[in-house]
Simulated assay, not measured.
Amino acid sequence: MVIIGIDAHKRSHTAVIADAVGRQIAVKTIGTTSSDHLALLAWANKHDDQERLWAIEDCRHLSRRLERDLLAAGEQVVRVPPKLMSHVRDSARTFGKSDPIDALSIARAALREPDLPVARLDGIEREIRLLVDHREDLVAERTRIISRIRWHLHELDPAWTAPANLDRASAFTRIKSHLDDFSGIVADLAQRLLTHLRRLTEEIDELTAELSRRITVIAPALLAIVGCGPLTAAKILGETAGVTRFRSKDAYARHNGTAPLPVWSSNKARHRLSRTGNRQLNAALHRIALTQARCHPGARELLARRKAGGDGGMEALRILKRRLSDVVYRALINDQKTCAARTLTLAA
């Protein structure tokens, strides 16, 4: 088998064919359209028509079209984390950095690591993630607008107390009624921002309702977890990007940053909190853990038992998050099976 490493960029992709021991055979740089990818396949067939593996740097915003075209052509594709590629490049005997050097490092990393994530076509998870990311962008924009409105209101009348929540219909009505008593550029800007704030809130509410409808259908087991609401479930589903790509619950825990890291070199085994992994997933698990710490009897019992055994509050919470990672993993697996069974039933 030969390995074809791909260094992906916005306007070009550089491919390097490497043999089974990592020696460079050929190099080619192409564009990023589907016709360019077809030419890349023809070039690969011309140099070697035996079994091959495509290794692409894992930056899907740049390589998604390439992955889709290769998978449609029946090729095997794996994703190489950028950090792994950089470590291989630094360990090489050559110096410097270029697209061919990076592509060769990607191919060599795929040779060294046999269990890299296998690329798959995008599914419902990407749609959920796009909706979640768009909603979060709108929420961040709404927060900025609320801050600007508050400063304009303070400038117009420091004695007037604005509503605590400016994203509610009652607050819009009250603020607009107050601004009607003023004139000038500051009041005009505040009126414009208030109109924009109302539109943003309506769109955020629409996205929230759409996500809730989708998640209720495709992730019932995830929603059944105490403390996991529709938005948290949507975040987990989108960031996981297909639970079947993880070979075990432990691999999933390593991915979301809840697996502890070993930090010992003598006879006494010690571990510490991991700061690696997908921090968005970790934050979602943290929200579930905080909710369960307040209202779930099993979680409260676990925290109390760990604290009685000498663990601190954060250490006990870390252990709860690790347990929750396994629970979430099993729920995602069950939801995947349910969706697959539903698809088969509809197809029949």
Rank of each mutant, 00 (worst) to 15 (best):
A284Q: 02
R305Q: 13
G309I: 01
G309R: 13
R287H: 11
G313I: 13
K307E: 15
A293S: 14
G313M: 10
E301M: 06
E301K: 12
T291W: 03
A293H: 03
A299T: 10
A284W: 06
D311H: 15
C295T: 12
H286D: 05
T291L: 03
R300W: 02
L290F: 10
C295D: 02
T291H: 12
G313C: 09
K307H: 11
A308G: 12
R306I: 01
H286R: 07
R306D: 12
A283H: 10
D311P: 02
G312W: 08
Q292K: 06
Q292E: 09
A304W: 01
I288V: 14
A283S: 12
R300E: 04
H296D: 14
A289T: 06
M314V: 14
R294T: 07
R294P: 04
L285W: 05
R287F: 11
G312T: 09
T291Y: 09
A299W: 07
A308M: 10
K307P: 07
A304N: 08
A293I: 06
G313K: 13
R287D: 06
R287K: 11
H296Y: 04
A304E: 11
Q292W: 03
E315F: 04
A308C: 08
R305C: 06
R306A: 14
A308F: 08
A284C: 05
A299I: 03
M314Q: 15
K307Q: 15
G310W: 07
M314K: 15
N282V: 00
K307I: 15
G312S: 11
H296T: 00
R287W: 09
H286A: 06
A308Y: 09
A289W: 01
L285H: 06
A293M: 08
D311F: 14
A283M: 03
A284N: 04
R287S: 12
H296M: 00
A308P: 08
I288R: 02
R300N: 03
E301N: 12
L290C: 09
A283W: 06
H296S: 12
A308D: 14
L302S: 09
L302E: 06
A299F: 06
C295A: 08
